[in-house]
Design a protein around this nucleic acid. Structure first.
Lengths: 256, 256
DNA sequence: TTAGCCGTTCGTCTAGAAGGAACGTTTATT
DNA sequence: AATAAACGTTCCTTCTAGACGAACGGCTAA
């Protein structure tokens, strides 16, 4: 009957469906029983019992038959974040970076071959983008992601790039493996990475990796609109600032 | 035949267990199969299949048999937060409040009769407390909570207080219903609430509710150590500042 | 008023969740 | 070094409870 993929052995099918429902509701920004039943090709009653359970536990909120994400995940996520070493040692520095530059500054870590924003500090005039805490992005299409890619060991890097490929996000996204490799080389040399509208049109970003020994913990970045970040700032001022901040964070890591 | 017990009707038991496991791992700050099997009084293999599923979906990370909370919940939580009206209109104001006062400033909303921190802005010298984004607190033991209680309709307020009671958190916590009621009256009169070490010893907090029409959306606060917030600041300066900021946020709500 | 769509509830059936025992490692003890 | 204890993990069997389809009640629109 159900032609599920073979990789789901020794797992709890009901939980899988519950979590898949959560994710679908996030993607749709809220949903109802019928549309979810259609999407997952199963009965309304099945979906309903899952929704009821998830609502009861605070993972969903039910607004007259329309279900949307509740605040319970925020408790778990907040916990995971606070316990994350990089968050503890980098948050204050990233706050300062945002304040000094007047732009948006972020901490990102790798998970399952993609990048996750751990934290975002926004100065008042900073642009609001679609990226908020918890957002997943492709590693090859952002400066922060390329920092991480550059410092992963080769086998892991190949694994990730094979799995996710190099999807084109904007006109400027690097979609060629050779080009990407040469960029990663330069990132390793310089200690900073650039993104000139590769993920979001008109958005420039400068990033630096945070390493401990031979392991990369994540990366930090400053990003803002092209019209406000001129070439001089983009190529000289910001790289120095971001690189220096990354060094301070690495020292924090060592003594924490 | 059907063993339906208590309040768990028409719900998915496997999902309930999965979510209970997540919460227990959060409380324990990571756990292993055996201790969880003991805690839930069920077989190791059952726990294991749940853990495997949750890890596979990114809700947990498995570090050599020790499981801890993953970053996937951060994605859901971040989404829920960004979609929350109060976060959108209050974040910038709360950032400013933290900067002006040099203390910690928060946004809180009510969920299931308890308070949830939606956002926290910390100035550099601000104290680090146990409360981070997503933390749940009792409404009667914080200034922000009392703001919300004061502006809920009476039936809902009674419902909440009956369900959770008035547990004593510190020596200063209000545990008497009559005392609480008179404080709530004063909060309604003044538009601000105070907390002088009622939740955390030595921590003072000033809060103001955010209302829209007759509905309370949540509350904002500034909190800091008693030694830094003198009586004058605590009773006059901060209340005015917090109240004014709340008014601005309420205007933002109206025009959003 | 009626038709159609929605979320919700109910009772049945069998898929799959739960349990127990055994395995392979790792860590502590003698 | 040998042994024991404890852990996470796997396998297989049993019967619980998750999935289903049909029916219900509430809502909106024609």
């Amino acid at each position: 009957m159900n032609r599920n993929e073979g990789a789901s052995n020794g797992q709890v099918k009901a939980t899988r469906l519950s979590l898949a429902i959560l994710d679908e509701i996030r993607r749709r920004d809220g949903a109802g029983v019928t549309e979810l039943a259609t999407h997952f090709d199963c009965s309304k009653s099945t979906i309903h019992s899952h929704l009821r359970t998830l609502s009861d536990e605070g993972y969903l909120v039910n607004g007259g038959g329309h279900y949307s994400i509740g605040l319970k995940p925020l408790q778990l996520g907040g916990h995971a974040r606070v316990k994350h070493q990089l968050y503890q040692v980098a948050k204050d520095e990233v706050d300062e970076l945002a304040e000094e530059t007047g732009e948006s500054s972020k901490i990102i870590v790798e998970e399952d071959g993609r990048g996750v924003y751990l934290y975002q500090a926004r100065a008042k005039q900073a642009v609001t983008t679609d990226s908020h805490v918890g957002t997943h992005v492709y590693l090859h299409s952002t400066a922060v992601g390329k920092c991480i890619l550059a410092h992963l060991d080769e086998s892991r890097r190949n694994e990730i790039l094979d799995e996710h490929g190099l999807p084109q996000v904007t006109a400027n996204t690097v979609t060629d493996r050779a080009t990407l490799d040469s960029r990663l080389d330069r990132i390793r040399d310089r200690g900073v990475a650039f993104d000139d509208g590769e993920r979001i049109e008109g958005l420039r970003c400068v990033a630096a990796p945070i390493t401990a020994g031979d392991e990369v913990l994540g990366a930090i970045s400053v990003s803002g609109p092209k019209k406000r970040i001129d070439d001089e700032t983009f190529r000289t001022t910001l790289p120095e600032l971001v690189r220096d901040t990354a060094r301070i964070i690495e020292i924090n890591v060592t003594y924490s």
